[in-house]
């Protein structure tokens, strides 16, 4: 049976992990490769690295980081942040990333999804959607996430998800902005609305505080995978603990 995936996410800047991390026993707690290796050993199914300050000047550093990860990590990983063109995608994929995540650039130029999928295959193209609740059962897409709360686009999130899937996205990474950072659980209604609107995998993101939240995102939100950062980075729970919790409740996981 296809396992539900648990995906730790790292925010990186200039090739370093920037969010606080618990691992005092590491030689270098800001080193993405050391952290990635640790999570791989703990049972992470995939990893996501988001370059939160991506800039053209920082490109070489980002590429070096991706190469180092690819050299030492034997599970799939996704790179996002600042990917604006097919050429940007090519650089990251050739450096060893398995998938690229696009967000703001895809909203500005939806054709980028189709061009990327055609060139590299849908399985490489993750469209990240940041969505804020504007009414019951209605969410609006935001772009430029991380910069003062982002910028509203007027796009309906479910409609945009459907369009991204039609254009050839291989997966959707859906972040509920109202839930993000609260540790009160994912935006289940959002996750479910999108998962039911498309036939490609949906990764729930934003709000995980307990393994129970991951269970809810999968069981009620119909997510195929759950992404989380601080729950793992601050040592509240390990990937293994989350998986054991899910398995006890009948969710297929790789343990």
């Amino acid at each position: 049976m296809l396992a539900k995936r648990i995906i730790p996410c790292f925010d990186v800047a200039q090739g370093r992990v920037v969010k606080g991390v618990r691992f005092l026993d590491l030689r270098d707690a800001g080193d993405p490769v050391e952290l990635a290796r640790l999570y791989e050993a703990e049972g992470a199914d995939e990893l996501v690295f988001l370059d939160i300050k991506a800039s053209p000047e920082g490109r070489r550093t980002a590429v070096k980081m991706v190469e180092r990860i690819a050299d030492q990590i034997f599970i799939p990983f996704t790179v996002g942040g600042g990917i604006r063109s097919v050429e940007d995608m090519r650089i990251m994929l050739e450096s060893g990333a398995d998938k690229v995540a696009i967000n703001t650039a895809a909203v500005g130029d939806p054709g980028l999804i189709a061009r990327g999928a055609e060139k590299f295959g849908s399985q490489c193209i993750v469209v990240a959607i940041d969505a804020k609740r504007v009414a019951p059962g209605r969410w609006e897409v935001y772009i430029y996430g991380g910069e003062g709360g982002g910028k509203a686009t007027g796009l309906d999130a479910v409609e945009w998800a459907r369009q991204a899937a039609e254009l050839g996205a291989g997966e959707l990474l859906v972040t509920g902005m109202d839930a993000d950072g609260t540790r009160q659980g994912y935006d289940i209604a959002l996750t479910r609305a999108i998962a039911e609107a498309v036939t490609i995998p949906v990764i729930a993101s934003g709000g995980a505080g307990y393994p129970q939240h991951m269970y809810e995102a999968i069981a009620e939100g119909k997510a195929d995978a759950v992404l989380a950062a601080s729950i793992f980075h601050y040592g509240h729970f390990t990937v293994r603990q989350v998986k054991e919790y899910l398995r006890e409740r009948g969710v297929p996981v790789r343990l």
Binding site: L2, T199, P201
Partner: peptide, 10 residues
């Protein structure tokens, strides 16, 4: 079923 078959399977 969702195609591609993508992810960890037994």
């Amino acid at each position: 079923i969702k195609v591609p078959h993508m992810g960890w399977n037994q």
